[in-house]
Every structure is written in structure tokens, then in C-alpha cells.
Amino acid sequence: MTLTGNFILDQTLTIILYGTIVVLFVSVNALFLVWAERKISARIQLRQGPLHVGFQGALQTIADAIKLISKELIWPRESDKFVFWLAPILVFAPVLSAFIIIPLSQHFVIRDLNVGFLFVFSLTNISFIGIFIAGWSSNSKYALLGSMRAVAQNISYEIPLLLSTMGIVMAAGSLRLTDIVAYQNKYWFICTQFPAFLIFITAALAEANRAPFDIPEAESELVAGFHTEYSGMRFALFFLGEYTAIFISSAIGASLFLGGWHGPFLPGPVWLLLKTYLLVFIVMWIRWTFPRLRSDQLMALAWKVLIPFAMFNILVTAILIYYQKFFI
């Protein structure tokens, strides 16, 4: 009895500890990412970006966060109150749980699940339910249109996202992220699976609702899409969720394709972070370069381009692996 009691206590404490660390990291990271995004976009657009609060405007995001926290939370009169309240949490929470499986180094991972990144993808899908009910409960036409687009987009892009990783799974022979990263000690998967990498980045962008796939919130068409009616901290949660999702996608991408913690001189976690931020930079760079796709074109891209190419990639990988075994 005492043993299980201890075990439960132990587990609870671990969860709280990890939870606190993750939430802290997520908040600080999101602040940094927002600042980085502003700076990167500003440099691309011949601007300076935030300058005045802190060094190079580094504290600007904190000022904005304080502003958002202090703002009034508006309830639209016709909204479905409970669901309206639930939606931002539903968007944000699943993204947080994805941190469980990111391997910072060989042994430094919260839970090394054997279903690996499938777990993340299935969890992040819950946040789409959050987006959908956010648009639905707002009882606003723009928000509804945005959420409708979000659902369609999500369904289409799950497939190429998973298909693009299947080649790696086949090569590494495991779904466990630690195994996949450990497999890359000789060469990174980006060398052998470059088309898959491109498909992964594209699909991850779409999953994270980032431009050029930001059609659920397309600000020039749908005002703000699914979060049109949200204000204050609720809006900030959507924002936080989006940035964390980018970070998670990039971290998984770095683990899958860029060899995770592998790298000379520096310790593993630093390498992972560096690679993740490199991917985040690419994501931002893409955002500030291209115009937005239309929703039907988005579907066409998924079904007519990404999925066939991903399938083809799996086929080629399978053949190669088979012959490799045959020859050896």
C-alpha cells in the first residue's frame, strides 16, 4: 500500500514539476518567438521592428502581454457561453502536452512513449476541435467560416503530415522518437528524405495555421477568422497556442529530420534548440514571403501534390530498404 502511495505521490510531484517547467518554458518561449517574429518580419520588410521597450524591443512582448491580460474579456451576447469559454483552453492545453515526448537528449525525455510522435499528432488534433467550437460558439459569420475552413484544412493535412514521416519510421524501424533520433547518429534523415522534409514543413505550416496557410484566420478576408470575437487573455491563449504549435512542430521536425540532439561540441539539448529555432526561422521566413492560398487550392495542394508525392516517397523508401536488406 505504501509503495503504491509513494508511487502516486512521486508521479504527481513529477507531473507538477514537469508541468511547471513546461508552462514556464512555453510562456518565455512564446514571448521570445513573438519578438523574433516581429524582428524577422521587420528586417525582411525593411523596417526596424520593436525598438523602445528593452534592448531592441525585447521586452515589447511582455508589455503587450500585460496589455492583453488587463483587457476586458468580452462575451458576445449571442454566444454559447460555456463553449466559448472552453475553446481557448481546448486549443492551448493539448499543445502543451506535446512536450511530453520531445527528447532533449538520449535520456532527457519526460515520457518516452512507444507510439512516439503519433501521440503528438493525435493530441494536436484536439486543438482543432477547440478552434472549431471557438468559431461555432462565437455566433459570428466570420468566425464560423473560419472554423469551417480550419476543420477542412486539418482533415486534409493530417494525411500528408503522417505520410511524410512514414519513410523515416520505416528506415528507423520505430515510432519512438528517441530511437529515431538515435538512428540518425551517422547521417540525418534530411539527406535521404528531403522531399519528405519539404512535405513535412508544408503540412506542419498548415497544421499550425501559419501563412501561407492561415486561411482559418485570414485577416484580410475573415477579419480574424475563428477568433474574431475573442479579446484579452482568451485571444492571447490562441496566440500562445499557435506559437507553441509552431515550436512543437519544429522540434519534432528537428528530431525527425535534422538529427535531434546530435551535433558536435555542444550538449544535446542545445543542438536540439538550435535546430528547432532554425526551423522556426524558416517557418517565419515563409510566412513573410508568400501570399495566402485559397481554401480550395489548399485542399488541392494537399490531395493532388503532397499526398501523391508522400506516397511515392514511401514507395521508393520501401523499395530501397528492401533491396538494402536483400543485398546485405
Binding site: 518580419s41 525582411i44 520588410q45 523596417r47 501561407p212 484580410s220 508568400f290 495566402r292
Partner: peptide
């Protein structure tokens, strides 16, 4: 127009 299409960056180049 490009801003309407979601391309943010050309907007700034044009305004420059």
C-alpha cells in the same frame, strides 16, 4: 492588393 491576398511583405516594399 497584395496585402488583401495575404502577402504582407510586398506591401512594405511598395510603400517604401
Amino acid at each position: 492588393f497584395l496585402l488583401d491576398l495575404g502577402g504582407f511583405t510586398p506591401f512594405f516594399y511598395c510603400f517604401d
